[in-house]
């Protein structure tokens, strides 16, 4: 599969990789972009085209390593993209899984108590995910933004937190993967199959987005924070 470049038409890229639809949405690009190239659309929306293709490529090519060291402006744009991702997880994807799961519990719990375990496991994942989002919004993003604007920084604090945060995030998408596996492979007994499928796909979308979020942090945000911290310390 060829890498996505800024001179490609966005419509053709999306037709080929429909999973990119939510990514476009997070950049604030609305539907109806016609036959314009990615570069043109980015110019019109005041977006950084290089950053956008890096994120698009990270989304569709699992082994892709972006050849891009983020500038301060790009770092700010990345944080804004990640915030938007978190907001959508919080406002749309978590409630989506919950809605299907509640319906499944409502119709099938009386006949199949194992569904209670699925429900408990999801509640655990949800709590952890909400805590992570809160931590990102309250601590991680403000410190990255402070660094980007060269304010004397709580940078050391942010850098120290990277590994533990990453571990937590990795375990989150793995937990969702496990929950899906359990639902698919090991749930026996009676349960509404349509609703099981609905929960399964809602979980899949959530897991995929968390994984992509981690990829963006790992491939773009963390290296940029490290490089800027180093630069910042050298200037002192």
């Amino acid at each position: 599969m060829a890498l996505i470049t800024t001179d490609m038409k966005l419509s053709e890229v999306i037709l080929q990789h429909y999973v990119l639809m939510p990514v476009i949405r997070r950049f604030g690009i609305h539907l109806g972009f016609g036959e314009k190239t990615i570069l043109k659309i980015c110019q019109e929306n005041n977006l950084d085209a290089d950053l956008m293709v890096s994120i698009l490529n990270l989304y569709v090519h699992p082994t892709y390593t972006p050849d891009l060291t983020l500038s301060a402006n790009q770092l700010v744009a990345t944080v804004s993209y990640l915030k938007q991702t978190n907001a959508l997880i919080h406002e749309s994807q978590l409630p989506n899984v919950e809605r299907h799961l509640q319906a499944l519990m409502h119709y099938s719990f009386a006949k199949n108590k194992a569904l209670g375990l699925i429900d408990n496991f999801f509640t655990e994942i949800k709590t952890e995910l909400q805590q992570r989002i809160e931590q990102d919004n309250d601590e991680r993003f403000p410190s990255v933004l402070a660094l980007a604007s060269s304010v004397v920084s709580p940078v050391i604090h942010a850098t120290n937190q990277e590994p533990s945060l990453r571990e937590q995030q990795e375990s989150l998408d793995e937990k969702i993967f496990d929950l899906r596996s359990l639902l698919m492979k090991y749930l026996t007994g009676e349960a509404d199959e349509n609703l099981c499928y609905a929960v399964f796909f809602a979980l899949y979308t959530l897991e995929n987005d968390i994984r992509q979020y981690n990829n963006v942090c790992q491939a773009l945000l963390t290296p940029a924070v490290k490089a800027m911290t180093k630069q910042h310390n050298a200037q002192k």
Binding site: I118, F121, S171, E174, K175, F177, D178, S181, L182
Partner: peptide, 9 residues
Amino acid sequence: IKTVAGFTM
């Protein structure tokens, strides 16, 4: 299954 939570379940 990879996580302890998954094993437990």
